[in-house]
Design a protein around this nucleic acid. Structure first.
Lengths: 163, 163, 163, 163
DNA sequence: TTTT
DNA sequence: TTTT
């Protein structure tokens, strides 16, 4: 086998996350994330191209996204590529690619607050750009709200070993 | 800005690379790469899901792909996600996602040789699994002409891939 | 906060793993991993530099390392950098850097078998270069032998959702 | 061969970069970068461990570091691990590990300005947390000051191809 | 020596 | 639809 499917993104949310709470209490959040690259075209003019990524986060990370992550903010995402296939109305096979995140870290950024249910003004964020400092990794935590699998992993690592 | 768009894959080629030599001598190679993950479904049964990635490599890396990389082989890919949009025949906006690789390293693997122009049997590869040891990163090699612009004949081959 | 510490390596083991089973049943394995880069010196001559990394794996991954990973083999490692400090005999502060792996995937390669307790000949490996296909991620599995947190995570991901 | 040696870090500078301009005009900058992880110890108490990484950047990136990167700021670093060996005064072989960065992206953060030549107060930064937006990749650009190999690479990528 |  |  020997398979690796890993994505690392830093970008800005194009919209607030859309969160759904499934039967069983599992949360799923989705949001578009923009990354942009600058390059010079053949005339030497500086051009920018923006890439939009469909981010999906589950469980504890979805709840973090729901509470703390807003349109405009900058986040670090680690995850894997997943392409779903479906039939369109004409029966043609179509593909839709998304990034299933298993690590999300807020980097601050510029939330506009405008479309946020919590309605947090932009001022407080701008005064403390990356103060929220919320970072979570998904893992086998199930619906374990507020859990952080990374902490759990470290917790059981005996750190006071003689080497 | 502060944008990162990075993909790391290890997987197997679903087909030999298709190589095109553009006007100006620039080479482009494309191939599907499979990664697979194993998981347990809700009944506790082990399931496997295969993800297919559309890999694109340019210039020197494309020439390496053309010469050394075959269906079935395992490669390490580092690159970025790129989603192209186009109108389908009904004028609907469609998206197609690919991975533009800027680093490709052969890991050996299991070439079947069947559709390869060189027609090397699998035996020699199996005797020296990662002996080729070809690793290249694209960089500022630019329009480094000198590539052989002759296209390798591509033999259509029925296969059971999902695309 | 907003901290990321991530390492990705592909290299070959310089020795068989040394495994210790701690009080409580937790396993720790250590092995040196070589990566090498090729570059041209100022005279344009091709040079190779080998980097040695001290890999540390815990729990289930350590047991995988103990059973399946041998000197000479190629592995993919994902982990984090950790620098331990200690006093040398003269009371000078010294540092020792290691990579704590939380994902290890066998890529096949070229075990020499010589120093292996299992003494598996190289032939079987060469016939099936990456057939072992052992890949494990550490997580909140504790001493949960044979567990694979990545599988667990997927297991609870409702895959048949309407999107 | 098949070797990969890749490091991805997000952390804060512990000091302003120290920059040296070598004979031939090549610049080298060095700075310590802190990453920190939070975990629960065996008593369930939250603990933090900080890791210090010795970052080295060359050429254009070093000049970016010199001009724009200050103590306290948050940066994304991509690079490789390099362990140098030397003899200490007693002739004992010692090792020193550093991260040679080939990509550095400023993420904003909290510069204290105190030791900065430009002396920019923290206010302006806090108002525009990641406004500097400087991102550069080193490459085979040699002493090509101010060059950006990533741009160069993209520049020559014919983006208007028929696929 | 950073940051939260 | 973000950000610079």
């Amino acid at each position: 086998m020997a398979s690796i499917n890993k994505v690392i993104l830093i970008g800005n949310l194009g919209k607030d996350p859309e969160v759904r709470h499934l039967e069983g209490g599992v949360a799923v959040a989705r949001f578009p994330l923009a990354t942009s690259e600058t390059f010079k075209d053949k005339n030497g003019d500086r051009q920018e191209r923006t890439e939009w990524h469909n981010i999906v986060v589950w469980r504890g990370l979805a709840e973090v996204a729901e509470k703390y992550v807003k349109k405009g903010q900058s986040v670090y995402i680690e995850g894997r590529i997943r392409t779903n296939s479906y039939q369109d109305k004409d029966g043609v096979q179509r593909y839709s690619t998304e990034i299933v995140a298993d690590n999300m870290t807020m980097l601050g950024g510029r939330p506009d607050g405008g479309s946020s249910a919590q309605g947090s003004g932009s001022g407080s964020y701008n005064n403390e750009p990356s103060s929220a400092g919320v970072s979570t990794s998904s893992g086998s935590m199930g619906a374990n709200k507020g859990g952080n699998s990374k902490s759990v992993a470290y917790e059981e690592e005996p750190d006071d070993l003689p080497f």
